[in-house]
Measured scan of single mutants.
Amino acid sequence: MEVRTIKVFTTVDNINLHTQVVDMSMTYGQQFGPTYLDGADVTKIKPHNSHEGKTFYVLPNDDTLRVEAFEYYHTTDPSFLGRYMSALNHTKKWKYPQVNGLTSIKWADNNCYLATALLTLQQIELKFNPPALQDAYYRARAGEAANFCALILAYCNKTVGELGDVRETMSYLFQHANLDSCKRVLNVVCKTCGQQQTTLKGVEAVMYMGTLSYEQFKKGVQIPCTCGKQATKYLVQQESPFVMMSAPPAQYELKHGTFTCASEYTGNYQCGHYKHITSKETLYCIDGALLTKSSEYKGPITDVFYKENSYTTTIK
């Protein structure tokens, strides 16, 4: 009895394709271990004539594949690729409408935090270190965002349907971005203890939790000093293409032309909904596939993004 075979390709990165001759009487799992086709788990399936010449994702289970996976995804987590594939199996079914010149995501599976993050990423200057993220990001900007969303979920250790947080998501993504040249110098002034300067680099240099107003941050924000008295913390120097200011959701007025974009969060910790506000020729609110415009805006804002380049204080 002759062994019926077909020729397929296996890959971990969709760049390096490895030619395989597979036995049609055995499952993919018996031949390769966990195997995925377009995100779908085909591990328990036997090869079919229609699979001839198709590319299958496999887990990096030998040295060659491990090197290829690390170079593309910059992670050695053995569960990463499987999590990416199972997320992709959902995100490829989502709709990605162009809204006001940006790629958004039609609401499904509690994905409003991903839509808000995706919209924000198209408006701030950011370059990702893992080629996987950078490639998928370019495709997302062009309207094909399924891979990018699935990668975000995998890097953030999230599953489809789980509630997510924009600030946490951005923080994970910033860790995989090139923020080497970003720098922030802060000064804390206390009447009792004097003053202390701190220099922050990388992710810490672009994120701040405690106030939404970048102007206020430049002037000074009140913080408790270690001595128990009130101290003032203010920005001395900022070198970065953008800054992200966050605070627990509270009524906040966004003035046209003073910011790049913002995240609105309605609801409580267990259950809520994100919308995205962007400042173009007027203010726009993007909620999944829905767009509304207004000249002014007041609502429960939790993150505001500002364009920056270089700032030095005039406070002496």
Rank of each mutant, 00 (worst) to 15 (best):
D77I: 05
T292F: 11
N268G: 09
G143L: 04
G272L: 00
S310F: 15
Q230T: 13
I124D: 08
T43F: 06
G101M: 09
V236P: 02
A87T: 02
D135M: 12
C112E: 05
T43I: 02
K7T: 13
F242Q: 00
K7N: 11
F32V: 11
K316I: 15
L186S: 09
I286K: 00
V243F: 04
S104P: 05
L163P: 09
P300F: 14
K7C: 11
K307L: 12
W94N: 02
Y84N: 08
L163G: 10
A115C: 14
A145Y: 01
D38T: 07
G220M: 01
T258R: 08
D38A: 11
G272H: 05
E204A: 12
L88R: 03
C225F: 00
K44R: 11
Q222R: 12
Q122E: 01
I105G: 06
A108K: 09
D41M: 10
D180Q: 14
Q237I: 07
A150S: 01
T278V: 10
K255I: 13
I15A: 00
A177W: 02
T313F: 14
K106N: 10
S86V: 13
L290M: 13
I15V: 15
S79I: 09
L121A: 05
P131F: 03
L126V: 14
C285M: 08
E253Q: 06
V188T: 15
F128W: 12
C285K: 09
N178G: 06
T76S: 13
K229Q: 13
E2Y: 09
S50D: 14
T76E: 10
S294V: 14
P97L: 13
F217A: 15
L179R: 03
Q222F: 09
T103F: 05
K316L: 15
T278N: 08
A115Q: 13
T198E: 13
I315W: 15
L37M: 11
C112F: 01
A87L: 07
G143T: 03
T91P: 08
S25L: 09
N187P: 02
E52S: 12
R141C: 13
K183R: 13
H18R: 11
G220R: 03
E168P: 09
T169P: 04
H74Y: 04
T76C: 14
L151T: 04
H48K: 14
M245I: 07
R184G: 14
T159P: 05
Q230S: 12
P248F: 15
E253S: 13
E168S: 15
L291V: 15
H176D: 02
N178K: 11
N187T: 09
L153Q: 04
T258A: 10
D63Q: 08
T258S: 06
S263I: 11
L126W: 04
L186A: 09
V67N: 13
K218W: 00
L153E: 00
Y274Q: 02
H18M: 07
K316F: 15
Q216K: 11
I277H: 11
I6K: 08
P60S: 08
K280G: 14
C193S: 04
A115F: 02
V58D: 06
L254R: 02
C193F: 01
H90I: 10
A289Q: 06
D23T: 14
Q30S: 13
H48N: 14
S310T: 11
M244S: 01
Y208H: 11
H276L: 09
I6L: 14
A115M: 14
V221P: 00
D180W: 09
A140K: 05
G202F: 00
L118D: 06
T43P: 05
G220T: 05
T159F: 08
L37R: 12
S171N: 12
K127H: 11
Q31S: 11
K201I: 04
V8A: 12
A142H: 14
K218N: 01
T258P: 00
C225R: 02
T302C: 08
W94D: 08
F174K: 00
G267H: 15
I315Q: 15
F242P: 08
H48P: 11
K255L: 08
G53R: 09
E308C: 09
E68T: 04
N157H: 09
T313P: 10
K7H: 09
T75H: 03
H18W: 03
V188D: 02
L118E: 02
D165N: 15
N111F: 09
A231L: 02
Q237H: 15
A117D: 01
P60Y: 02
G228I: 04
H18L: 05
E308G: 06
G161N: 06
A136Q: 07
N129A: 08
V236G: 01
K127V: 11
C112Y: 04
F217H: 03
H256W: 09
K307N: 14
Q196V: 10
E239H: 11
K127C: 10
A40M: 14
G164K: 02
A289S: 11
Q98D: 12
A69D: 06
R83A: 09
M26I: 13
A231V: 06
P241N: 07
L212S: 03
T258H: 10
C156W: 07
H51Q: 08
T278S: 13
R184T: 04
V188I: 14
Q98I: 15
R167F: 00
G82S: 14
S295G: 10
K293A: 12
L133I: 00
W107N: 07
